[in-house]
Simulated assay, not measured.
Amino acid sequence: MGFMSSFRENLGGWIRKIFKKKRARIGLYGPPNAGKTTLANRILKDWSTGDAIGTVSPIPHETRRAMRREGLVINANGSSIELDIVDTPGMATKIDFKEFMAFGLSETESKKRAKEATEGVIEAIKWLDDLDGVLLVMDSTEDPYTQVNVTVIGNMEARKLPLLIVANKMDLPNASPSRISAAFPQHSIVPISALEGSNIDDLYQAIATHFG
Score class of each variant (00 low, 15 high):
86 V>P: 02
120 G>Y: 03
47 W>E: 08
120 G>M: 03
189 I>T: 14
87 D>E: 09
169 K>F: 10
118 T>Y: 04
4 M>T: 10
21 K>N: 08
184 F>R: 10
70 E>F: 03
140 S>K: 04
108 T>D: 14
45 K>Q: 14
137 V>E: 01
141 T>W: 07
100 F>R: 00
176 S>C: 12
128 L>Q: 14
134 V>K: 00
124 A>S: 15
180 I>V: 14
77 N>F: 10
107 E>C: 05
21 K>G: 10
189 I>Y: 13
113 R>E: 02
200 I>L: 12
47 W>Q: 05
146 T>H: 05
174 N>F: 12
138 M>S: 01
201 D>G: 03
12 G>W: 13
160 K>D: 14
144 P>M: 03
119 E>M: 11
174 N>G: 05
136 L>H: 11
6 S>C: 09
171 D>W: 08
123 E>D: 15
92 A>Y: 01
104 G>T: 06
104 G>V: 06
88 T>K: 00
197 G>I: 00
177 P>I: 01
198 S>H: 13
124 A>K: 04
183 A>T: 09
177 P>A: 01
73 V>C: 09
1 M>A: 14
159 R>Y: 12
170 M>D: 10
177 P>D: 02
158 A>N: 10
95 I>D: 09
129 D>I: 00
44 L>N: 07
46 D>F: 09
161 L>M: 04
28 L>W: 05
41 N>G: 11
165 I>H: 07
89 P>D: 13
130 D>W: 11
165 I>G: 00
191 P>T: 10
177 P>Q: 00
36 K>A: 06
151 T>L: 12
42 R>E: 03
143 D>T: 08
31 P>D: 13
63 T>A: 03
11 L>E: 15
58 P>I: 06
154 G>M: 10
118 T>Q: 13
167 A>S: 13
143 D>H: 06
193 S>L: 08
65 R>A: 12
69 R>N: 03
1 M>Y: 15
204 Y>D: 03
207 I>V: 14
28 L>Y: 13
206 A>L: 04
195 L>V: 08
33 N>A: 04
142 E>P: 01
142 E>M: 10
82 E>A: 02
71 G>R: 04
130 D>G: 05
211 F>I: 05
81 I>V: 15
197 G>F: 03
135 L>C: 01
97 F>Y: 15
190 V>G: 07
160 K>G: 08
90 G>M: 05
21 K>F: 03
46 D>T: 08
184 F>P: 04
48 S>D: 15
102 A>S: 11
54 G>M: 01
49 T>H: 09
117 A>Y: 05
169 K>Q: 11
33 N>L: 09
127 W>P: 02
27 G>W: 00
48 S>G: 14
109 E>W: 04
31 P>L: 12
95 I>R: 07
6 S>V: 11
117 A>G: 08
180 I>P: 02
163 L>V: 11
121 V>T: 07
116 E>L: 14
43 I>G: 02
70 E>T: 10
131 L>Q: 02
198 S>T: 15
37 T>F: 01
20 K>M: 08
165 I>R: 07
26 I>G: 00
129 D>C: 00
